[in-house]
Design a protein around this nucleic acid. Structure first.
Lengths: 240, 240
DNA sequence: CTATTTCTTTACCCACGGGTAGGAATGCTA
DNA sequence: TAGCATTCCTACCCGTGGGTAAAGAAATAG
């Protein structure tokens, strides 16, 4: 079905998804920028559900109860659509960096704040697009642009780690690898969050930061069990 | 160019990529299974470079210096190709679980061993396919199969974490979220490893395990700096 | 009330790529 | 040497989907 439809428009059966300013709120939301934004959001949602390559522009148009050329009226190409979604997502993270720059707390706390926002951004509607926008799907120019934004975020995290090591709030470590580990864990949220929304983005982010901070190795003061039990359990004879 | 080529086969200009058993080693590698395997590997490499959707079967065939129908002689569909790559990758991880089951060491050490193998698998030639094989690109049947394999790995990690908490080798934590964080960090390696191969898979895995174990918060006995410096640095007045 | 701009549609183009039909080599068997 | 099986190729099919031309509807201007 290539942007075709039975001539008489199907009556808007359900009261429309509220994100579609066309047939509803016709008077107020006439503004062009708003419509464009709605297109981007609809694209994000569809990419989210079916992936970039499995989403056709007809799908996006259908989600907005519009036809394909209308989408093209607000956007020049599919790749631009993906790009805009990416930017919308990454902008949230950049904002987190800006906000944190003002705080006069140890770098680890600033890092934690950034990571929390990072996690929430990945769990947001643009998370998938932000995380999965691949250079391979984009023109060289946009690919470069995305790469530089990604790199900016990466460098920001590394910087906070270095500062944390300097001011003593972060254990000495390799900033590059550590940044990769942190960002990777958070990015991956986008992969499972759709399937498992039992927690909010903020809750996940908090849980992750807790893991990052403490690590797996038990800290002193943790509960102790007697040596015999521990040895037995370590053998793997633990009941299932 | 749809599997077409100038009639006289272009002379094999370069001495062939060694992974293509067709024109070289004609006698020995005549075995069918080997050829099929070569097809899978070639597919993995191409998916790696350009992504699943941006790789055509003509591309894969070309990489093997063969034509498309030949590929179809060894494989029934593109999605099966992806599926096989996935299985090849995940099998390495399952093997790690099996190997570790015999060890009588604390669960944290067993977990670390698994994570190290996990990381190496992700950095291997099948890593990308394993990590990025999405249900959306596959038939329902294969999608289910992949999901169950993924879930098996996930549950395996959670189990080791629970056991570690039990035997005291792992700090108390939420096994589910912790498993997500660990697996996410490792999975993400597939995204940047192609671009940055400055470390081997084993080195990366080791570095990551170090981060996971210790966490960011400085442990007692770490180096201390005097309180004044720390406060000053924490202000963000640190020279860049 | 006409003219012009803005927005949306119908109807179409066509490259790409997954997949196949059928035949030609090649080799193996008798 | 005929006959059968395996392997690979040439040539093709056709659905999908990104993208466009051009005309119609709706709003705005003059």
């Amino acid at each position: 079905m290539n942007s075709r439809r039975p001539s008489p428009l199907p009556p808007p059966k359900t009261p429309v998804a509220a994100a579609s300013p066309w047939r509803t709120n016709r008077e107020r939301l006439r503004d062009r920028a708003l419509k464009r934004e709605a297109v981007i959001r609809a694209a994000a949602r569809e990419f989210n559900r079916k992936g970039y390559h499995n989403t056709s522009l007809d799908d996006i148009a259908a989600a907005l109860e519009v036809t394909k050329p209308t989408v093209y009226y607000y956007v020049t190409s599919k790749e631009q659509l993906l790009f805009q979604c990416f930017v919308a997502g990454v902008e949230q993270i950049r904002a987190a960096f800006r906000a944190v720059r003002e705080l006069s707390v140890p770098a680890r706390e600033r890092l934690n704040a950034v990571l929390r926002h990072y996690g929430e951004a990945v769990a947001s509607e643009f998370g998938w697009c932000m995380v999965r926008a691949e250079e391979q799907d984009l023109s060289p120019a946009m690919s470069r642009h995305i790469k530089s934004l990604k790199s900016e975020v990466d460098q920001g995290i590394r910087r906070l780690i270095r500062e944390g090591i300097q001011d003593g709030s972060i254990e000495a470590c390799d900033p590059k690898m550590t940044a990769f580990a942190l960002a990777g864990a958070l990015n991956w949220i986008a992969h499972w969050y759709r399937e498992d929304q039992s927690l909010t983005g903020a809750q996940i982010a908090t849980a992750f930061v807790t893991v990052f901070e403490g690590g797996l190795r038990p800290r002193r003061g943790a509960l102790h069990i007697d040596a015999r039990t521990r040895r037995r359990r370590a053998r793997g004879t633990l009941a299932r």
